[in-house]
Design a protein around this nucleic acid. Structure first.
Lengths: 240, 240
DNA sequence: GATACAGCTATTGTATACAAAGTGTCGTAC
DNA sequence: GTACGACACTTTGTATACAATAGCTGTATC
């Protein structure tokens, strides 16, 4: 039973001439980021090996790194799966991201040159356009590009890579807890306002703006649903 | 040429019955943390395999994880080495730790119960005692234990593991840039004062206290020295 | 004496074989 | 029909063999 994602990944792999473990990590990260690899998806080593045309050794290294980044979860003698954080962890991920992205934005205030502001502006416009055209997947891509741009240009590179990881983990939990009725996790003008604040160089205001933005995003999710595991635990409690 | 650290690690390994990659990661992390594995130390896979009595497969997995945690650096076809961040990265590590540990402490304010305050107090006293007795290595161990205690009990577990990593990376750069004359990186009463603030539950003051504490620690380092690579570059400059 | 080159050694990269553990299925007993 | 157990299959864990690459040492040459 060959599922959809195997084809997607192998197509991506075919484009590049050679395949290193770094490539594999990037492909899988990107697939998770764009929600083509939903939470809990099984990732058997042999299957991935066939998809990318390498042996398990290389896959194993890639999976180890992905597990370190909390993109997948690996338990002994069990198949690796795309991570599926519970509600509590989801809140913690958002809180951590508010802290880190707030600081990064604060550091970034007034630090860009004209070309960089231009690049950001292009991304913001593209997102707005995609939203107006109802192209949801393209809108998400642009939105992610904006946040990644901030992470990649963080004056503090440590915080930059932390933010990159947190953006990915945020994508995972959004995929998990997005309200079914909700067509889109979009907050109009938030990114445009942020860009303006960056230009003006008001660090504290910009920091708070990002944090509010992320809070709004979190509030769009349905975090009331009890977790599968927690359900089991409560059942046992009743039996005892 | 069997060097010192190989013996140290193997002794640690012998104590535990079985050896998993997690054990190996922990051993190496601890050895780096306590500065028995100084920055730039070479870590060949076969040697580690002999030390721990496992094959390269297991070592390889451990090294991959350590590299993900920035404890070691791995370049293609080259021996893994204990990380040795440059001055710029050192400053960034400290800045990141100030942000994260400040937040963790803020979250922790007034959150401990009596037993937990007692545990912390014991650690603080032990550190003070070790300092008075001039037992530097023991003092460092206690100091690390205090900060690890905070990280391990962070209400936000994401920030907790981030802090654990940053503590380790801080240890590495302290080993690298400690002033030669300086006998100790100790700031009297800082930890005791922090404990008092945690008890009182003044989150913002406690946060600022930790951040100041970390700034003082950074200022004890000699971050003016040019990097090894830069030294070589300047020598070449003279010859040309 | 300096330099370029060749070959050797040390070390990592990759694939594969086998062992061990988990997962699911089928059949049988009741 | 259900519960239990045996067995087959899937998947990961570990070791090892071989290939490929980096770094070093010695030597020949200018």
């Amino acid at each position: 039973m060959t599922s959809r994602w195997q084809e997607e990944l192998s197509v991506s792999a075919r484009g590049t001439g050679r395949i290193s473990d770094q490539h594999i990590v990037d492909r899988i990260r990107h697939a998770v980021l764009t929600q083509r690899l939903p939470p809990n998806t099984r990732l058997p080593e042999v299957t991935l090996g066939e998809v990318f045309g390498v042996s398990r050794s290389v896959i194993r290294k890639a999976l180890t790194r992905l597990a370190s980044d909390h993109v997948i979860v690996q338990q002994p003698n069990q198949v690796a799966r795309v991570a599926a954080p519970d509600v509590a962890e989801t809140r913690e991920i958002f809180a951590a991201r508010r802290l880190v992205e707030g600081e990064v934005v604060s550091l970034l205030c007034g630090a860009f040159d004209g070309a960089q502001y231009g690049a950001l502006e292009t991304l913001v416009h593209a997102e707005q356009l995609a939203y107006e055209q109802g192209d949801e997947s393209r809108r998400i891509e642009q939105s992610l590009a904006i946040h990644h741009y901030l992470a990649d240009h963080s004056p503090n590179r440590i915080l930059g890579v932390m933010l990159t990881d947190l953006i990915l983990r945020t994508s995972i939990v959004i995929a998990l807890y997005k309200r079914s009725g909700m067509t889109s996790c979009y907050l109009e003008n938030d990114h445009a306002d942020l860009l303006a604040l960056l230009r003006e160089g008001k660090a504290d205001i910009a920091r708070r703006h990002v944090q509010t933005h992320l809070e709004s995003l979190e509030n769009l999710l349905d975090l009331s649903a009890p977790d599968t595991d927690i359900d089991l635990a409560s059942i046992f409690a009743f039996n005892v």
